[in-house]
Design a protein around this nucleic acid. Sequence first.
DNA 1: AATCTGACCAACCGCGTGCAT
DNA 2: TATGCACGCGGTTGGTCAGAT
Length: 284
Amino acid sequence: MGKAPCFDKDGVKKGAWSPEEDAKLIQHIKEHGHGNWRNLPKEAGLLRCGKSCRLRWINYLRPDIKRGPFSHEEEATIIQLHGLLGNKWAVIASHVTGRTDNEIKNFWNTHLKRRLLSAGSNKQSHQSPSCSGTSTIKLESPSTSTSHMVQWESIRVEAEVRLSMESSQLNSSLEDKTDSDIFLRLWNSRVGKSFCSSTAREGGVLTNAVSETLPTELESDSIATLQARPTGTSTSTDTTTQEQDDCYRPNVDMVPPSDTNSSNDFPDSFDTALMSLLDFPVVK
DNA sequence: AATCTGACCAACCGCGTGCAT
DNA sequence: TATGCACGCGGTTGGTCAGAT
């Protein structure tokens, strides 16, 4: 698959990579590291531009790349993070072990986005969505889901604005955090509060939406991690220091999702909001 | 069997950012 | 401060494949 090989006017090869080229690149990086990408093709004996080499390595040849279909946990993580971060594929990829930004972007565009859209249109035509074997996403009424999408987008924009305004204040305390963690912190702080309060002002859209749209039964352990815990009435034994906000104050340290379920340990408000957008059933 | 069509995904392109000079 | 370079990111393209007609 991929594009057929061709050469541009500078004699730089373009298009699909051959196994021989892959082997050369891997061998060179194993021995010397990638160093300067621009110089690498010459040093490795490749008729490629450095950019192409870098992309090939990052998206395909890197030894820690995980191939194969996305797991439901990975899907859930991507949906969650995309809802929070938007098209920040690199940041999302950093929380999905072994997946590249390109792969996640493709997966989103070809699978998840379409699934979301089709799920919405299914609802619009009053078809009862069925979960016959494959993972599907149900939304509440299109108008409600659209409303939530707008809310999500506005919150994300707000987060970005606040980030720029507050970055100097946060720098000292967040020096060791990644960009995505900063987003999460913002989300979990004023932005989260703002979101919660705004939804409360609007008549508890989220809470109502969740109560109206939550499945009547949990379909798996995985989805249980996505389900909204009772907002403000958490009986969880591991969240003993919840602040007295409407919004849950979580452990903000995100960890890669591969080994544990903690990737789904988003704040209650986040889970609640997410579940207002998505009922994300995971196949048993 | 031939053709059409849509899905998939590797790869390319353009732009923004950070850093060195 | 201004400039150029290298890199990374996100959007887009286009080749291949599989299913439908």
